[in-house]
Design a protein around this nucleic acid. Structure first.
Lengths: 111, 111
DNA sequence: TCAAGTACGCACTTTCCGGTGAGTAGGGGG
DNA sequence: CCCCCTACTCACCGGAAAGTGCGTACTTGA
């Protein structure tokens, strides 16, 4: 974690950079997700990484975790906080650019 | 580099993710930069990384390198290509969010 | 009895991102 | 003679990011 920042983009990258954080946020941008739903939508992420990144996003105040389950029936839901929602312009722009880029380069995207 | 993508944000992150690519692109969004100017604006990046990331951005068609120098007087300029300019909405959104985030968290940004 | 679901934990391993320090060839200046 | 500038290269290294494989407790269903 850099101690000093020299531009605003460095600040943003520090919080939402990396391979999986933007993807997690993009899925949650569409609505509440259970843990298993996130796993299914992100088949290439390890569980270790998914949980670690979710914890970090919670710690940064971007994601909230609701445990609605019981020991007999586990049920956890994740959703964006107000701070997380403030990222919608970034996530929307990333998504739009990624779609256009995939179209220009013929890159397949498998849901 | 993942072989398969499951959403558009993964595509975007693969091309412009990492600690320094977004920052390089953000500086070039403001206009042409010489190598030394980029170095001065990004004091925490190593030269090895700066050059490596610039090379990758060139390879992806986002950045163009113009060598205007001579052996006696080296002079290289970097600028965004049309494809690079297509990233302006992403970079602007990252910048705006980073500024707001820094303000909300009291994070100093030193130019 | 086994497999699958839920939402994780844990120890270990691998990859690669990023840094360091020294170097290059030409120049200028104190 | 030494320091600075330009725009890099190179070998080596550390650690964070990410993955792997097995595990947990409770349930349901074949």
């Amino acid at each position: 974690m850099p101690r000093r920042y020299h531009c605003a983009v460095e600040v943003a990258v520090d919080v939402i950079g990396g391979r999986w954080r933007p993807v997690i946020l993009a899925h949650l941008k569409e609505g509440v997700h259970r843990y298993g739903e996130l796993r299914r939508r992100m088949p290439d992420v390890s569980e270790k990484m998914l949980v670690q990144r979710l914890r970090e996003l919670e710690a940064e105040g971007l994601v909230a975790r609701h445990d609605l389950g019981t020991p007999k029936a586990p049920h956890v839901e994740y959703h964006l906080t107000a701070e997380g929602h403030s990222l919608v312009p970034v996530l929307a722009a990333l998504h739009a650019w990624g779609l256009a880029r995939a179209a220009r380069t013929g890159t397949p995207i498998e849901p």
